[in-house]
Write a protein that binds this DNA or RNA. Structure first.
Lengths: 250, 250
DNA sequence: GGGTATTTGTTCGTATGTATT
DNA sequence: TAATACATACGAACAAATACC
């Protein structure tokens, strides 16, 4: 057996157990991308090489690669090859979670685009998260978080308006929520709880995150408190499923 | 305005902004279910009442309810009403995470069904999780976790075979992983890391979890260590998206 | 068991806005 | 620009299952 693929051995797929071969191949490649054995920007083996590695027809490999492209994990360029598109970004959840810190640790250039800033009445869920009376006024910052130019998260940050009146201006001046809060006297804050759920995106969310609608979201709801224990922020962050994994360090 | 619905006021939906009315209604109801204002088992207002509350036609409400039913959140019974189907189970992640404890705290009767138990070679991801050489032998327990009879999770638990040779028998004798590990000399263990991702289920996963294929999974990968810090378990748990939320207490 | 009200299920018809061709 | 297809939304009527007296 000549090995043109560069990998050590043929991988065995389970045939005839109800899981299509292309799904198994896609899963294997997704694993490699998720675990960074295939780094972001790296070129996948050629279709011919992959076909040899999994001992299947090149058409089967193409079906698997098409699924990965649909999921936004790879980018296929005719005549050049297939490349790992987006790094699977780790979003670490802990007592002190900051978006920009999170990304800088992974050598990604963070960025944020403010979509909307407003003062309005809290919805029931928002009021509950901040322990306010239903209908209390809140400051809302809606933004899209970027990592290396690619949209990573679509987040809605809610603050009690009574306490954080000038937050929007402070944010516009500093360009950072942490800095804006510091301007308003919150030198430090920490995370109380995080709830992680999943669902399919609405049309607008898919558009903002530049993701296909068939790909699920990771939704993280979080409450932040100041040093006195008062609730200062209730945030909902929606992550493009294939591009982010939430890491909990115990 | 006579109020036949029993609710205080009409809720305003934003018309003509690109988000269909039925999606907004489904979202509002999903919020109430997720936040337990509509408790598990509770009956939703009648279609007529909801139509009045949102000031829409009954068809529009029906479309929203159909979406919730498709997502597995409610159960509709002709002549009786619509009921909140499954509690959104909190799956708490912390240093000491035990499946059964997790559920008992919420007054749910835990249960597990062993699907498969075997000793086999580790895949690359499994070997990496346990810090073993690729291809080392591992003990694998595959099970479905139940809460009040409803499947909640589909988990694959991997242990190094060299150290946990008699694990399968110990599990069969005790019916609990924690107890089986205790028999084999691991009195205590704790969680090192947890990675949370999301994706759509394979056919078999959807079947095991009795969920629609269009509904995404929450996938939690975790590594457990003993008191000496040695890796003793690598587990992948797949949760039915609409039925579980992962809670991280910082 | 019967009768009636309640609640969901189904099928017509009509109209509108959006996207595609 | 016109034609077409599709999703959305409203209105009315009746069928079927259930609950209650």
């Amino acid at each position: 057996m000549t090995d043109t693929s560069g990998t050590a051995a043929r991988e065995t797929l389970s045939r005839g157990d109800g899981v299509a071969l292309w799904r198994q191949i896609a899963g294997a490649l997704r694993d490699e991308i998720g675990s960074r054995r295939l780094a972001p920007g790296a070129r996948l083996p050629t279709e011919f090489q992959l076909a040899a590695r999994f001992a299947v027809n090149r058409h089967t490999v193409r079906r698997a690669v098409a699924a990965l492209e649909e999921a936004g994990l790879v980018r296929v360029e005719q005549g050049r090859g297939t490349f790992v598109r987006s790094e699977v970004v780790d979003y670490t959840v802990g007592r002190r979670t900051r978006f920009s810190e999170n990304l800088r640790k992974q050598a990604l250039s963070p960025g944020g685009r403010l979509i909307d800033a407003a003062v309005r009445k809290a919805s029931d869920a928002e009021a509950r998260g901040l322990e306010l009376r239903a209908g209390s006024r809140i400051v809302v910052l809606e933004m899209v978080g970027l990592a290396d130019g690619l949209p990573i998260s679509h987040a809605t940050h809610c603050f009690p308006a009574r306490r954080f009146d000038g937050l929007i201006e402070a944010y516009r001046a500093t360009g950072s929520i942490t800095a804006a809060l510091a301007q308003l006297g919150v030198a430090n804050y920490s995370r109380l709880t995080t709830r992680v759920t999943t669902r399919l995106p609405e049309a607008r969310e898919a558009e903002l995150l530049e993701m296909p609608r068939a790909q699920p979201l990771l939704v993280a709801e979080a409450v932040n408190i100041d040093e006195a224990g008062a609730r200062i922020e209730y945030g909902i962050a929606r992550f493009a499923g294939g591009r982010v994994q939430i890491v909990v360090d115990s």
